[in-house]
Design a protein around this nucleic acid. Sequence first.
DNA 1: ATACCTGTTCTTGTATACAAGATTTCCGTC
DNA 2: GACGGAAATCTTGTATACAAGAACAGGTAT
Lengths: 226, 226
Amino acid sequence: MIGKADILRQLRNEIVTLELKPGSILSETALSERFRISRTPLRDVLKQLANENYIDVYPKKGNLVSYIDLESVEQIIYLRSTLEKDIVKTLASQAAPLPLKGVLELKEILGRQEEAIGQDRAHEAFLHWDDAFHKSLFALAGRVFLWDLIQQSNVHYARYRRLHLLKKEKLEALLGEHRLILDSITNRDIGPIDEIVQHHLHEDINAAYLRENFADYLNLPRLDSL
Amino acid sequence: MIGKADILRQLRNEIVTLELKPGSILSETALSERFRISRTPLRDVLKQLANENYIDVYPKKGNLVSYIDLESVEQIIYLRSTLEKDIVKTLASQAAPLPLKGVLELKEILGRQEEAIGQDRAHEAFLHWDDAFHKSLFALAGRVFLWDLIQQSNVHYARYRRLHLLKKEKLEALLGEHRLILDSITNRDIGPIDEIVQHHLHEDINAAYLRENFADYLNLPRLDSL
DNA sequence: ATACCTGTTCTTGTATACAAGATTTCCGTC
DNA sequence: GACGGAAATCTTGTATACAAGAACAGGTAT
C-alpha cells in the first residue's frame, strides 16, 4: 500500500530530476486516478509541494510545475556559501580532535563519488553523493537541522544544478574541490577555506547559458504575445 | 468574510504570543465552529501550522500546540548570527554609497523602538520593531528572501524571545546594540561587527532560567510516570 | 471576417457523510 | 473496593457530492 509520503517523494523526485518539466500541469483528478487515491489526501500532497515551491497553484485554474527561479538559486547559494564557510572553518579549527568516524565517512563518500563519474547515470549518482558530502559536513558541525531547513527550499537550486552539469564535464573539478575541503579540515589549514567554498558553490553562475538553452524552463518575464 | 489566510494569521499570532499555551489542544471541530467554516479548509490551515512547527499532529488523537524546542532555538540563532555578521559587514564595506533612504528607515525604526519602551504593551511593540530593524538590514543587503525563509521556521525562537524578555528589562540594552550596529554601518567600521552581532543575537541563551520558570512550555523529556 | 454573447466543460474549493483508530466511561465480576 | 473488558464517544483520515470560478467552443449578429 502506498501512502501520501510515497506519493510526495515520487512527485518531488520527478520534478527535481526534470522528468516533469516546468510548466507541466498536475491536475488533481489525473493524479488521483494515477495513484488510485481520492482527491482529499492528494490535495494534501499538492499543498505540501506548493509549500516547497515545487508547484504553483492558480486557484480554480490549475497546478503547474514551477519554473526555475534564478533569484531563488542565487539566494540559496549565498546562504549555503556563508554557512559552509563558517562550518568548514569550525571543523578545521576546533580544539577537540576530529572524530575519526567522521573523516572516514567523508573519504568513503568521495570514493563513491569517484566511482560514480564513470557510470551510466553519472550525473544523478554524482549529485547524490555530492549532497551526501555536504550534508556530512553539516552533520559533523552539529548543523543537520540547518541542512534540512535548506533542503525544504531547494527545488530551484537542485534543478539549476542538474541543468548546469549538462554543460560540460565538471564532475572531476567538483570532486577535486571536495578533496581540497577535506584536506584543509584534516590539515587544520583555515587559510584557503573561504576561497575554496566560495568558488565551489558558485561554480559559474552562468545564467546566460541557461537562458540560451533552457529558456522555457526558467521563470522569466514571459512574452505571451508572440 | 474571513478567509483561510486570516484564520492562519490569527492562530499563528495566538500561538507565538503564548496566548495559546504549548500543549493546548486545537481540535478541528472546535475550530471549525469557532470560525464558522467547514473542516476541509480548516485542515488546510492546520496542515500549514504543522508545517511551520506551530503544532504537532498526532494522527487520530489530536493537534497540540508545540512545546518550545531549545535545540531549534539554538540552531536559528546560529543561522541568523552567521548571516547577519556577513550582511552587516557587507553593508558597512560596500563601495557604493549607502542608500540614504535605507539609513533613514533604520533610524526611524530605532525611534519607534525607543517610544515603545515606555508604553503599555512594551514587549510586543518592542519586538515588532526589533523584527523590523533586522528585516531592514536583510532588505538593504538584498536578502529579504532569506529573512522570509527564516521566518518560516521561527516559532520556537519567537516564543523563546518573549519568555526571555520577561526576565528583566533588557530592552534598553538591545536598543543600544541596534544603535551600535547602525553606527558601525554608517561609520564603515567593520572591526567590532562580529562581536556586536554575536552578543546581540545570543543575548544570554539562558536555558536554565527557562527550565526553572517555564518548564511546562518546553520540549523536554517528559516523565509521564509521576 | 470579426466581435460578442452564451452555454458547456474544464479546473480547484468547500461541505459533509462515513471510516478507522484511540481514549474514556461504565458496568460487571472478582 | 479494584480490576477487566466492552461499548460509547472522542479524535483525525478519506471519499464523494456539490459549488464556484475560469477557459473554451460555437453560434449569431454586425
